[in-house]
Amino acid sequence: MKTEDKDFDPEESLALIRTMIETTKASIKDSSHYFLLWGWATMIGCIIQYVLLNVVHYKHHYYAWFITPVALLIHVFFLVSDHKTEKVKTYISQANSYLWMAIGFSFLVLAFIFSRIGWQNSFPFYILFYGLGTSVSGALLQFKPMVLGGSSCFVLAAFAAYIPYDLQILLTAFAILVSYIIPGHLLRLRHRHFNQNSL
């Protein structure tokens, strides 16, 4: 909108305030690439591990998770390139960053804990954290598909405790599909739609 330095009446003032606040709402950056990166990386990790464990019967089936450092490198690349283009910091994007930083550390600590006590019961906890992160992120971004996908992980995490380890791997892949991948693609569509309309 075109703004000039002139006086104006109260209605115009309120209209201007409303328009500018709407404008900043539209400036919430598209974070779908992070959800898609980790969603697809984890999904691929689960499928490779399942195949190595049940089809190939390979002893070191957990090698599938060497995909994590690769995803981490791509994540750092995304962070650096986003930092270069970021012109505005919103409270929502900051809250999201803190949330995922805390969840990232939780994953690290979980990896440490399970390497000590055994990985056989690890998946329900990972699913629980996927649910926590995506449901809160979805609420912050006011994006219902992510809230719903994330919330469904709470049920899936509890269910995972009742099924054998190899099926837990597949259930984790499903949890990732509903909490990261599908909402991630929908979030991307929403941003594209929004950008097209604001042109």
Partner: peptide, 25 residues
Amino acid sequence: SQLRLAVMSLLISVKEAEFTFIKEK
């Protein structure tokens, strides 16, 4: 004043913004 109010309305809902962002909006 229209422009100063526009700047304040932008900044009220964000943590911080670059000058170029404000100019663009």
